[in-house]
């Protein structure tokens, strides 16, 4: 299974020259196994997907972790959605007073967007997920609610004996200095346990996190502690704060790694990066 990181930036897209190294598009990753593909999140990174690599006769599945703007902003510009002959399925968190379709309609309708969801040519089917297991071609997908403001899912995708866990927005503890000792009390634990690749929120520096407790994001320290507890094989720091340029992000990462030691590799997510699991 190959993973391509099409968007790695959190909050909002940025195109400034000093943000090009790690990328300026908001979250979207693509999973590829032979001719089968799966997309998770529809931030502006989805716009950069090479649709020519897709078989137009095959169904397209897009999983959404949640409906914050940085994770759906590219949906209205996703070309296959505007192909009337394309079968498109959009999956996302249920568990709200309002249905997933109703919540998506708020974005995909005037005045925010010119075309309403029901008029999108592919007529995408909307599916609600909670703590669920589904099979999509060769991909087995486990979804689970995790701690982040509003209904938010994390995903674990297993394929051909390998696993990816994607939790781009996550604050596994609020008002505490460390994770609970008992694993069953750690948000997202089951999703990430012994996963081969963990892509996890690490938006803040440690000092910054203290001023933003409850906003739903992690520091590098929290992210690494979560990865260590769950025995993840490899950790990718994701959801880069657009307020921090590449140089700042690199120096923060280097400082963090110089003070800490982990028995698994850690790296900063880079837009366009391809990772073979």
């Amino acid at each position: 299974m190959k993973v391509i990181l099409h968007g790695t930036r959190g909050a909002y897209p940025t195109s400034t020259p000093d943000n090009q190294k790690y990328g300026g598009d908001t979250p979207c990753i693509e999973l590829i196994h032979n001719d089968d593909r799966l997309i998770i999140d529809a931030g502006t990174g989805i716009i950069g997907i090479d649709w020519n690599q897709y078989d137009p006769t095959k169904r397209l599945d897009i999983l959404l972790t949640h409906l914050h703007m940085d994770h759906i902003q590219g949906l209205g510009f996703c070309k296959p959605l505007f192909d009337p002959n394309r079968e498109v399925h959009i999956w996302g968190p249920g568990g709200s007073i309002y249905s997933l379709q109703t919540r998506l309609n708020r974005f995909l309708s005037p005045p925010l967007f010119p075309v309403v969801l029901r008029d999108i040519p592919s007529q995408p089917e909307i599916h609600e997920l909670s703590n669920t297991k589904i099979e999509l071609g060769p991909f087995t997908v486990h979804s689970s609610f995790i701690i982040h403001p509003g209904p938010t899912l994390g995903y674990r995708v297993t394929c051909d004996g390998k696993s990816l866990t994607y939790i781009p927005d996550h604050e596994p503890m609020i008002g505490r200095t460390k994770l609970y000792d008992d694993d069953s009390w750690v948000s997202g634990f089951d999703l990430a346990y012994e996963t081969d690749l963990l892509i996890h929120d690490s938006q803040y520096e440690n000092e910054e996190y203290i001023r933003k407790i409850g906003w739903g994001h992690s520091s590098m320290q929290i992210s690494a502690e979560f990865a260590a507890r769950t025995k993840a094989g490899r950790l990718v720091f994701f959801h880069h704060d657009p307020a921090h340029n590449d140089q700042h992000r690199s120096s923060t990462f280097e400082a963090f790694m110089s003070k800490n030691s982990f028995d698994f590799p850690i790296e900063l997510a880079v837009q366009g990066q391809e990772i073979e699991i």
Binding site: S144, F145, I146, I147, D183, W185, V186, S187, D190, Y193
Partner: peptide, 8 residues
């Protein structure tokens, strides 16, 4: 293992 629900 079965983790606690997020609400708990």
């Amino acid at each position: 293992m079965a983790g606690r629900s997020i609400e708990i």
